[in-house]
């Protein structure tokens, strides 16, 4: 339910916003905030949550209208947004698929075609096994995989997408052949975990945020062998060792951020990156973020752009190992 915010509040916040920044840009019409997917997924949650926080906290004068443009794992939305060159009133939610999809499938656009605005939060990959499994740490599992390449590792997404890349990258870092991972794609992380509990696969790779509910459950049937962060995570995942701690030099970020159309005016970019920075500092956001199990990981436009380039290098390396790199792109 969208409500109009009191004018006084609006005035006050826009003052703090512009203070110190030489940005003259303010949206002059409602901002289309696009989730390149169906309602309900990660992008959609990001778009709806952040526009709600921006609205309720009165951070912007104009409305942020959440719009779903699903199709092709994002490709449909990207091709539409790529045409809005220089448009300062379009934003979209983004995460690793903006790099992975163009590398493996036929999206004509990749992250270089858009303007990075800000990275907002991140999640990490985790490897789970059944509670009664013999594998005590990640090295046990990796050794077993080396011995038996048929050992099945389930994940929630298709081969060549996030879960698979996270696992293949881990295997690669441990000196195994990335393409030897017997990755079994399920229809989602939840589906994969259910199959792990039923003993149908040996291990599952999924997002830590998605797994936390399962792990913290007292009579839980699954446990985590490691996380892909460089420092230990907080909360109920606090006693799960990182891969680096266990001697596998490997980190993997499942980041989420915001991008805009090609050649977005610079003052607009500045305005939005500051807006999102401010949004991350509100209590309202903290509340929502904790509910979703996300971890703040803000980066401004420039930094985010460099980060994206390094991610692209890393992913195309792993995809190359797997033989999944699309030759044409």
């Amino acid at each position: 339910m969208s409500m109009r915010t009191p004018i006084t509040l609006l005035a006050a916040t826009s003052l703090t916003l512009t203070a110190g920044v030489a940005s003259a840009f303010e949206p002059s019409e409602s901002v289309e905030f696009i989730a390149p997917a169906n309602p309900g997924g990660g992008w959609d949650t990001l778009v709806r949550t952040s526009s709600r926080v921006i609205q309720e906290e009165g951070l912007a004068d104009e409305e942020f209208a959440p719009i779903n443009t699903p199709g092709g794992g994002g490709a449909v939305a990207w091709s539409q947004i790529a045409k809005r060159e220089g448009d300062a009133h379009t934003l979209f939610a983004t995460s690793p698929p903006i790099i992975l999809v163009p590398l493996t499938e036929s999206s004509r656009y990749d992250h270089n075609d858009f303007t990075p605005i800000a990275r907002l939060s991140t999640d990490y990959a985790t490897v789970l096994v059944a509670d009664d499994s013999d594998y005590e740490d990640i090295n046990d599992l990796l050794d077993a995989m080396e011995e038996d390449p048929g050992l099945s590792v389930g994940g929630g997404s298709a081969p060549g997408s996030m879960d698979h890349i996270a696992m293949a990258g881990l295997a690669d870092a441990a000196g195994l052949d990335a393409s030897s991972v017997n990755y079994v794609p399920f229809s989602g992380g939840g589906d994969a975990m259910t199959n792990l509990m039923g003993g149908h696969v040996e291990a599952v790779v999924t997002g830590a945020g998605e797994a936390v509910g399962q792990i913290e459950d007292d009579d839980s049937d699954v446990r985590a062998l490691g996380v892909s962060s460089s420092d230990r995570l907080g909360g109920s995942l606090g006693d799960v060792a990182t891969f680096e701690e266990q001697g596998v030099d490997y980190t993997f970020d499942i980041w989420r951020g915001v991008m805009g159309p090609p050649d977005m005016p610079e003052d607009a970019v500045t305005y939005y990156q500051d807006l999102f920075k401010e949004m991350l500092e509100t209590d309202r956001w903290a509340e929502e973020r904790d509910k979703l199990g996300w971890i703040d990981a803000y980066q401004g436009s420039e930094e985010f752009g460099e980060f994206l380039d390094s991610q692209a290098d890393e992913f195309s390396g792993i995809l190359g190992e797997l033989g999944l790199l699309d030759e044409e792109s």
């Binding site: 169906n38 699903p70 199709g71 092709g72 794992g73 490709a75 449909v76 091709s79 493996t104 499938e105 036929s106 999206s107 298709a158 081969p159 060549g160 997408s161 794609p185 229809s187 999944l324």
Partner: peptide, 20 residues
Amino acid sequence: GIDHQTSTERFTFGSAHLLD
């Protein structure tokens, strides 16, 4: 659409709308 087991496109006729 995209075959979830292999990420291969099937019967999409090159249209992004049919990928899902």
